[in-house]
Design a protein around this nucleic acid. Sequence first.
DNA 1: TATTGTTATACTCTATAACTATA
DNA 2: TATAGTTATAGAGTATAACAATA
Lengths: 153, 153
Amino acid sequence: MTQRQELALGRLLELVVLLNQDMTQSLATIDLTTSRTTVLWELRQRGPTKQNVLAEALKVSPRTMTGLIDGLVATGFVTREPHPKDRRATLVTLTAHGEATAGVMETDQAQFVEILFGGMGEARLTCLFDGLEEILARLRQHGLRLPEPTEAS
Amino acid sequence: MTQRQELALGRLLELVVLLNQDMTQSLATIDLTTSRTTVLWELRQRGPTKQNVLAEALKVSPRTMTGLIDGLVATGFVTREPHPKDRRATLVTLTAHGEATAGVMETDQAQFVEILFGGMGEARLTCLFDGLEEILARLRQHGLRLPEPTEAS
DNA sequence: TATTGTTATACTCTATAACTATA
DNA sequence: TATAGTTATAGAGTATAACAATA
């Protein structure tokens, strides 16, 4: 492990932390959490959706999805509607507020991109992008896992 | 917002998610969480430390630190020792197991670096690093925040 | 019998407020 | 009076298991 590689990992982790913090904070100001926002995002793409489908999309248990929807209903982003063909199921549906919020998030994303990459040279952007791609590929190749923790103690 | 910028943000967020998942999973196999691991890391640098110092280091409330230490005590990574000069305070101290684990994590980090950057060309590594630095600088400049969420609904 | 979503239970991270022991 | 850490309480995300209603 060269020192430059170690530094690069440091920057990467720093970025992970910062991006998480920023997103969490910003979303909190509009009564959202990252998990609930992901649900909103899915609903925007899919339209009214069954809970189990959402649970699979987020790779989360059905029970956890119940909780997320509970929160979104309580804060007025979605409603639970009866499924027209299957009385066991409910269709989670965006409210007007939910739609509006999801729409605004697209604008915000554009502004965020501007902050991160605005005015960054073509060459550097390409290079950064390719680097990220390569890291992602490597991570996926290794089964998306950190090295098996060498047994401690 | 160009399409390439949008793609770059996508990769960045993907990486954030993957790194978080991987770290969480790997740590779970040795009975740790990311928060508790951060405490371990601090203890390794600082030696026996008062809880309030740790709370400030993690930017977390004293109450939250109590919970984190409770967990680390229960799983055998640290002990609470009386502070020699201040009977109000406790000194959180790594056990042998805690020391060993913290040590192993350094090795793991090296392996992880190898996965991410091993054999990556000098030029690309430099470029990636510089790109990350630039993004971090931009984020910091903008007060570590996403754009003020344009009022929804 | 299989599926959908719930209740029941549990663990983690997070916070504020009130309180105890000590400085 | 101020500080260190606790109990009390609360909300959010996560999970498994048991169960009701429906397919």
